[in-house]
């Protein structure tokens, strides 16, 4: 059987499939569900300094081509992250704690707390498109990006991933983060979007606009991974519309070493999704003569 193990930013994963931040991952019951689905590590919901209730429903709209969501970073606050980490560790899985702050000091504080609570990796959410004061709002300048990355790197020893959305500044942002010692990039977050009910005559989400995920953004994600890998040959975790062996292989060939899955978990509600994707991946690798998943990483680049 072909090798599916990968090593990314110094962390070993038995296979390349992780859940995406925001799907379950905010309490121990949710982590148990993710672990039972067979992911090789658990990515938590983005944790903030204080608990956040998030927006009122509707917080999600199913679309033919994905989802539009505006949850508003609902989470129980960083003081509750320990129980989430412990739940994942009970399943023997590494935990990637996603954190979201409003300034470099917040990020440094959250990073310290998460490491102390036992996180194996940090994922800096620099890209949530629908929560004012967080995500894309705090990465608007090179200076801020640099300060967030350096303040986090100066307080923790564990690997730090940074999650970006697609923008015209992607390559520049990646360059800044990597030069500040960020260990891997997670590409991409949802893209901003709005859906209007034409009979009601109003945007549907309570927040009016939200983040688009799923098949609609898959080519954007593949492009982003490809471009950043082409430029920097760095460790990348691809995310956006991965739902089967083919979308997974595309991400790997573009340069991702691991992938995260969000929308597919909630579209299919198929508890065997991970198992099925991995079985299909192995069949594809056998057919195409790949013996090791690492051979696929960046295969599509010249």
């Amino acid at each position: 059987m072909a090798n599916l193990q990968i090593r990314i930013s110094g962390i070993n994963l038995v296979h390349p499939l992780l859940n995406a931040s925001g799907i379950l991952g905010s309490n121990k019951e949710g982590v148990n569900l993710l672990a039972l689905m067979g992911f090789s590590g658990i990515v938590t919901k983005t944790f903030t300094k204080k608990p956040r209730k998030g927006y009122d429903p509707p917080i999600i709209i199913p679309l033919e081509y994905g989802f539009l969501n505006a949850v508003g970073l609902a989470n129980p606050g960083i003081d509750k992250v320990k129980e989430v980490i412990e739940a994942a560790h009970e399943h023997g899985l590494p935990v990637i704690v996603s954190i979201g702050g409003q300034n470099p000091d917040d990020f440094a504080y959250l990073a310290g707390k998460a490491e102390e609570a036992g996180a194996d990796v940090l994922e800096l959410n620099m890209s949530c498109p629908h929560t004012p004061g967080y995500g894309i709002d705090i990465t608007t300048t090179d200076k801020l990006l640099k300060e967030i990355a350096s303040s986090v790197k100066s307080v923790v020893k564990i690997p730090v991933w940074a999650k970006l959305g697609y923008s015209k500044r992607l390559i520049k942002e990646a360059e800044i983060l990597l030069s500040e010692g960020i260990d891997a990039l997670v590409l991409i977050n949802t893209l901003p979007g709005m859906v209007i009910d034409v009979y009601v005559g109003k945007p549907i989400l309570s927040n009016k606009y939200g983040g688009l995920s799923g098949p609609a953004i898959h080519p954007v994600a593949v492009y982003s991974v490809y471009r950043v890998y082409q430029e920097f040959r760095c460790d990348i975790i691809g995310v956006g519309g991965v739902h089967d062996w083919k979308t997974l292989v595309e991400m790997l060939m573009a340069g991702a070493r691991a992938v995260q899955i969000g929308t597919a978990i909630i579209s299919f509600n198929d508890k065997l999704l991970v198992k099925r994707i991995l079985e299909d991946l192995l069949k594809y690798m056998e057919e195409r003569g790949f013996k090791d998943i690492n051979e696929l990483v960046g295969y599509a680049l010249d």
């Binding site: 379950l24 905010s26 949710g30 917080i59 999600i60 199913p62 949850v71 609902a74 909630i266 509600n269």
Partner: peptide, 10 residues
């Protein structure tokens, strides 16, 4: 959410 991601209805 009604669709399985928020964990509210566990």
């Amino acid at each position: 959410c009604g669709v399985g991601f928020c964990g509210e209805c566990i």
